[in-house]
């Protein structure tokens, strides 16, 4: 008697890991899921919302979603690089507030719009530099350094504004928030531009390769002569600059500097990165998938809003979807192991 009955089935997908190369030997569906699964979730969600929510799939609403999601997406872009290096940046939400306020302060001080925008981004990059230097050169844990940043930057935001919103009705760079380029909202154009740049950086520059190498195996990177510390510093500078950019857009959108801007945004950004399938263990992930993750969150918020789901339930559903999406994603790893 033989034991063919059970094992003779075609494509024993789960058992390949032992000897065969896990990926090469996997059936087509699993590979498709690896690559496009998260995009499928987005499409599914759009279809679902289009059916359930009135006015969801209108031209205006699509841009509304993209514009609303753009700030989270911009934070998440920088966060992707940080997480790729096995790090975390909890300070981006507070950094956003400080940078937004700085850009408004620069405007009220009489500077031209371009310098206000550049100034906001530069301040963000500067705090990123501080984070990165502490993490890379003093070898402090990223979680603690940026948790401190989350707190002291929020304090700075209150200090700069005396706790009150800093109104600027004549804000010169308000188009950064509310303008359109060829019919597309400016924040969306900026977001897409940023993702294009970071996609190129990760995929086509030596810096990108170094980011993946450090995340994949920091000791191997060091022994291969990669400047690990300097690369880490640059990663946190980028995350800070993204926070600065998001802060400028935020201020432009509300035409004021808000000390409470961006509270808990760092968590949304992390959620978008993780939804996009970037590994918290570092070394695996792409920005384009983070963008999809951010859009999933945007579609969900918008759809729930259009369906008049009460806010409390919205939070519960959003949290549930994040956990569910990550669970589905890890299921494939679990089956493989």
């Amino acid at each position: 008697m033989t034991e063919t009955s059970r094992a003779g089935k075609p494509a024993p997908t789960t058992e390949a890991a032992g000897i065969a190369p896990p990926r090469a030997g996997r059936p087509r569906f699993a590979r498709l899921w690896d690559r496009y699964g998260i995009l499928g979730v987005l499409v599914l969600m759009i279809v679902l919302m289009a059916v359930l929510a009135p006015n969801f799939l209108t031209f205006t609403n699509v841009f509304n979603i993209a514009r609303a999601a753009s700030i989270n997406a911009i934070l998440a872009a920088g966060m992707t690089l940080v997480i790729l290096t096995r790090g975390i940046d909890l300070s981006v939400g507070s950094n956003l507030a400080v940078c937004g306020i700085v850009s408004v302060l620069l405007w009220t001080a009489g500077l031209p719009s371009v310098l206000c925008v550049a100034g906001g981004i530069a301040v963000g990059a500067l705090f990123g530099l501080l984070n990165g230097a502490l993490i890379a050169y003093l070898a402090l844990p990223a979680f603690i350094v940026t948790l401190g940043g989350l707190t002291y930057l929020r304090g700075t935001a209150y200090l700069l504004t005396d706790g009150q919103p800093l109104l600027a009705d004549d804000l010169g760079f308000r188009l950064m928030g509310s303008g359109f380029i060829a019919g597309v909202p400016v924040p969306v154009v900026v977001m897409l531009g940023l993702y294009l740049v970071l996609w190129f950086v990760l995929r086509h520059t030596r810096f990108g390769t170094e980011v993946y190498a450090i995340g994949g195996n920091p000791e191997a990177a060091r022994l291969a002569g990669i400047k690990v510390k300097w690369t880490l510093v640059r990663v946190y500078v980028i995350a800070g600059a993204c926070a600065g950019l998001a802060g400028v857009i935020f201020s432009a959108r509300v035409m004021s500097g808000q000390p409470t801007a961006g509270e808990t945004y760092e968590l949304d950004a992390i959620a978008a990165v993780v939804l996009g399938g970037t590994s918290l263990m570092g070394g695996i992930g792409t920005v384009q998938r983070t963008l999809i993750g951010a859009m999933i969150m945007g579609v969900l918020s918008n759809g729930l809003l259009l369906m008049n789901v009460p806010y409390f339930y919205q939070l519960i559903i959003k949290g549930g979807v994040i956990v569910l999406a990550v669970a589905i994603d890890s299921l494939k790893n679990w089956k493989r192991a």
Binding site: T209, A213, G216, A224
Partner: peptide, 29 residues
């Protein structure tokens, strides 16, 4: 200490401080 297991053979071979210099121009691979 040596390999980047999730990276390709190609990326593993070029990833040294000097190797990356040699396969890039102005930082672009």
């Amino acid at each position: 200490q040596a390999l980047f297991l999730d990276m390709s053979i190609r990326d593993n071979v070029v990833t040294t401080g000097l190797g990356l210099d040699q396969v890039s121009d102005f930082g672009v691979l």
